[in-house]
């Protein structure tokens, strides 16, 4: 099993460089304001490469206002050495695919995911019902070059797909928001909010938004036990993964979910897992 640790910023880089990992990526899927600038990322990624590890940059899903800056950042960093660039929106993927970057590995990120068909009636569905990466969906992305897919622990990816799969462990991302709930909660404007999202909020739904009148009413008693505990980091909402990825593959550990000692322990456990071999 190969282990990649994902950091939102280089703040914990020294700690992670001391762990038995194969790759270190910096960034996250949701927020361009949280992404460090080139002056901070460049040296950090160089240190990762210098340690003999695969270096990764995770670009947040772009909105038009910041789209060009994200592409410029990625191109600039990719020209300084081998780099995996994880892309979380179609426009950035299309833009980077058009640039000649020989040492750059493009990866499809967690937020560039296929949707799920809605129920033909109104049957309840779990937030943890797996995302299915149909070959047709992956085929459309292949036209842009990537062959690496980052997927959540529950995602279903067809065996015949010629993609390298890197699985996030421990958490399942459920949503990203342009209007950041954490910044709102702390009443912080953009950029002043950068450190607020280092502290997660644990939430669960208590009230239903009633479509007819737009008011909130208590969730029905029968549905209350089904509300999953959610973790909010900045503008991203996560649920706890119901199961770990199968041993033997490539995994991504989001360091935010593992404070200092817990991260080292989690990495050690993952490193010790042996691949599952098929029965003779």
């Amino acid at each position: 099993m190969t282990v990649e640790v994902r950091l939102s910023t280089p703040d914990r880089l020294d700690e992670v460089l001391g762990l038995a990992v194969d790759a270190i990526s910096i960034g996250q899927e949701g927020c361009a304001a949280k992404l460090p600038d080139a002056a901070a990322l460049g040296p950090a990624l160089e240190r990762v490469r210098g340690a003999g590890l695969r270096a990764g940059l995770v670009l947040p899903a772009a909105w038009q206002r910041g789209a060009e800056a994200l592409v410029e950042l990625a191109v600039g960093l990719a020209r300084h050495g081998a780099l995996t660039v994880t892309v979380n929106d179609l426009g950035t993927l299309a833009a980077l695919a058009a640039v000649d970057l020989p040492d750059c590995e493009l990866a499809v990120g967690l937020a560039l995911l296929p949707g799920r068909p809605h129920d033909a009636a109104e049957n309840p569905r779990s937030v943890l019902e797996p995302i299915v990466y149909e070959p047709a969906f992956l085929g459309e992305l292949e036209g842009l070059g990537p062959r690496v897919l980052e997927a959540d622990p529950t995602a279903v990816v067809p065996r015949e797909a010629h993609w390298r799969i890197r699985r996030l462990t421990d958490a399942v991302p459920l949503a990203w928001a342009r209007s950041c709930p954490t910044a709102r909660h702390h009443r912080l404007p953009l950029t002043a909010c950068r450190s607020a999202c280092d502290t997660p909020l644990a939430i669960s739904a208590t009230h239903r938004w009633q479509l007819g009148h737009g008011h909130l009413e208590p969730i029905a008693v029968a549905d209350r036990p089904h509300q999953p505990p959610l973790t909010v980091y900045g503008n991203a909402v996560y649920a706890t993964a119901p199961a770990a990825p199968a041993p033997g593959g490539e995994v991504i550990v989001d360091a935010r979910f593992h404070p200092r000692t817990a991260l080292a322990e989690r990495v050690a456990v993952l490193r010790s897992q042996q691949p599952v071999t098929a029965s003779p």
């Binding site: 899903a61 937020a111 560039l112 995911l113 949707g115 799920r116 309840p124 569905r125 779990s126 937030v127 019902e129 459920l174 949503a175 990203w176 928001a177 342009r178 909020l201 644990a202 939430i203 669960s204 739904a205 208590t206 009230h207 239903r208 938004w209 009633q210 479509l211 909130l216 969730i219 029905a220 029968a222 549905d223 209350r224 089904h226 509300q227 999953p228 959610l230 909402v237």
Partner: peptide
């Protein structure tokens, strides 16, 4: 939440998840 990458409406009985009420 951004609708194109949101699973929150699948919270059973909570309606549109980003419009729902939360405690935490």
């Amino acid at each position: 939440a951004s609708c194109h990458s949101c699973r929150l409406p699948d919270q059973r009985g909570a309606g549109l998840g980003c419009r729902a009420g939360y405690r935490g």
